[in-house]
Computed example of a mutant assay.
Amino acid sequence: MPLCKRLLRLVAIAILTPVIFLLGCQSKLIYYPNPYRAEHETMLRDAKGARVRFTTSQGAQTAFYIPPRVTTPGLPQTIWLCFCGNGSLALDWLHFTDDWDDHFAYLLVDYPSYGDCAGKPTPGRIRESGKAAFAALAQHLGSTQQELQPRTAVLGHSLGCAAALMAADDLNLRRGVLVSPFTSMTDMGRIVLGWPLCYLNLHRFDNRQTLRHVTSRPSARFVIFHGAEDEVIPVRMGRELAAVQPRVVTFHEVPGAHHNDILSLMMDRIGRAMREVVAQVEP
């Protein structure tokens, strides 16, 4: 074989090998599902929580309803749809809810393949789970989605910010708190893989576009927290998202906070922002 053809073959192999690897293993590079442990069952029981079961195209799914600690007649005043970060589980939110408003209720939502949920995650399937979980919650509470919507807000961390925004978009929800959000998965790919491999992204979460759509609704209100030392998602992405609708979105840069410790460091401040958002009070 002529030398030029051998060189072309080597170049083609060098180019195609990372492409094939990224296309074939992309989900494993993005998602880190975990099973539940016995301690989570204890936490759920202590919180007087209940499993909310539903089915999607991925099979059987389970979310968790946590009622308010202060019981009042009728529906809860506020329900937070909570979406965890990658490598976490829905019930991990229970570490924080005890220190938030006693009148809040929560629906803690896992992604397909996480916790007790079947299937494999993609943006579309995560979106489907958010909608189906909310419908199942309405049934669990003996209510309707239309009745719950004005009482509901979203909370997300990291990957959960994308899930929270998609749920807000689909369910016509207008209030939320986002912690350590990214602008888009393609932008994240540019950081990790560089150009042009970032465009091989098949999981096209686009928080910039979704937030723009959600915050264009009347009475929309969002707060973003982002650690100044975030080593996974740069703080500039949080700033960039807040700039989408600066009159509607308040941005808090947290000095010294990293990607995962921000929830613990800012637990009280996040809880205060949650109260302010649902009360439509300026943080």
Rank of each mutant, 00 (worst) to 15 (best):
M1Q: 07
P2H: 11
L3K: 07
C4T: 14
K5H: 09
K5Q: 12
R6Y: 08
R6M: 13
L8V: 09
R9V: 14
R9C: 14
A12N: 08
A12Q: 09
A14P: 01
A14W: 09
L16P: 12
L16T: 15
T17N: 10
C25S: 10
S27Y: 10
K28H: 13
Y32Q: 11
P33M: 09
Y36Q: 12
E39A: 04
H40V: 01
T42D: 10
L44I: 03
A50S: 14
V52C: 01
V52W: 01
F54G: 00
T55N: 08
T55K: 11
T56A: 06
G59N: 00
F64V: 00
Y65G: 01
I66M: 04
P68H: 02
P68C: 03
R69A: 07
V70D: 11
T72F: 00
P73L: 00
P76V: 01
T78P: 00
N86R: 13
G87F: 03
L89E: 00
A90H: 02
W93T: 03
L94E: 05
H95W: 05
T97G: 00
D99Q: 11
W100K: 06
D102E: 15
F104Y: 12
F104W: 11
L107S: 09
L108M: 07
D110T: 05
Y114Q: 09
A118V: 04
A118R: 13
G119V: 08
K120W: 13
G124E: 14
E128M: 08
E128V: 03
E128Q: 11
S129G: 06
K131G: 15
K131C: 12
A132P: 03
A133M: 09
F134C: 11
H140D: 09
T144P: 06
Q146P: 00
E147G: 10
Q149E: 13
P150V: 05
P150T: 03
A153T: 02
L159Q: 09
L159T: 03
G160I: 03
A162S: 14
A162N: 04
A162E: 07
A163C: 06
L165A: 01
M166P: 01
M166I: 14
D169S: 12
N172G: 12
V179H: 03
V179K: 02
F182P: 01
M188V: 13
G189I: 04
R190C: 01
L193K: 06
L197D: 10
Y199F: 15
Y199T: 13
L202T: 15
H203R: 14
L211N: 05
H213G: 05
V214T: 10
P218Y: 08
V223L: 04
F225R: 02
G227C: 05
A228C: 12
A228T: 12
D230A: 10
I233Y: 05
V235I: 12
V235D: 08
R236V: 12
M237N: 13
R239I: 04
L241C: 04
A243C: 12
Q245C: 11
P246Q: 12
P246Y: 11
V249L: 07
A257C: 10
A257Y: 10
A257N: 09
N260P: 06
I262W: 02
I262H: 01
M266G: 04
M267E: 15
D268W: 13
R269K: 15
I270R: 08
G271T: 14
M274G: 06
R275H: 15
E276D: 15
E282N: 13
P283Y: 13
